[in-house]
């Protein structure tokens, strides 16, 4: 990458934050949608998913690297939160004791995460706005 390209790397750093938060909101929406799925093609109830964020690094020679943003590297299943057994004998997926195994999604927690994610998205947007105004001001020097 050339030097002029590096001038605007801040813009891409913020854009990577926006993209990563968008992935997170998508996964949260998926979790909320799946909060009551008791039978999935893989068998068993829906399992909550979590996004894993990692810093994006760029190497520039001799073992040196600088952080240039963030990336949602993978989406993993939440194997820590337990499924909940709810007593509902009339449910088609109830076992012989009348218990239904429900997904390990807590809609309240998902909503809180969603709000957090949206705030982070907005923070990235205003960081981008800050950079744009600085760049504009730098160009104004030449006027």
């Amino acid at each position: 990458m050339g030097r002029l390209d590096q001038l605007f790397s801040t813009l891409r750093t913020s854009a990577s934050g926006l993209a990563a938060e968008r992935v997170r909101v998508g996964v949260i929406a998926e979790n909320i949608a799946g909060a009551r799925i008791t039978k999935t093609p893989e068998g068993g109830p829906y399992r909550r998913k979590v996004v894993v964020f990692e810093p994006l690094m760029r190497k520039h020679g001799a073992g040196e690297s600088s952080a240039v943003g963030v990336r949602a590297t993978r989406i993993e299943n939440d194997t820590v939160s337990p499924f909940e057994d709810v007593h509902d004998p009339s449910h088609p997926d109830a076992d012989e004791n009348g218990n239904v195994r429900m997904p390990n999604v807590n809609p309240l927690k998902e909503m809180a995460d969603m709000i957090g994610s949206m705030r982070s998205y907005e923070a990235n947007l205003s960081a981008q706005e800050n950079f744009l105004r600085m760049a504009q001001r730098a160009l104004d020097i030449a006027r």
Partner: peptide
């Protein structure tokens, strides 16, 4: 200050990175 802007943008982008 340009470099600091870049560093702050990176901090904000990574505010949810464990």
């Amino acid at each position: 200050t340009t470099e600091r802007g870049r560093v702050i943008a990176n901090n904000i982008a990574n505010q949810n990175t464990p």
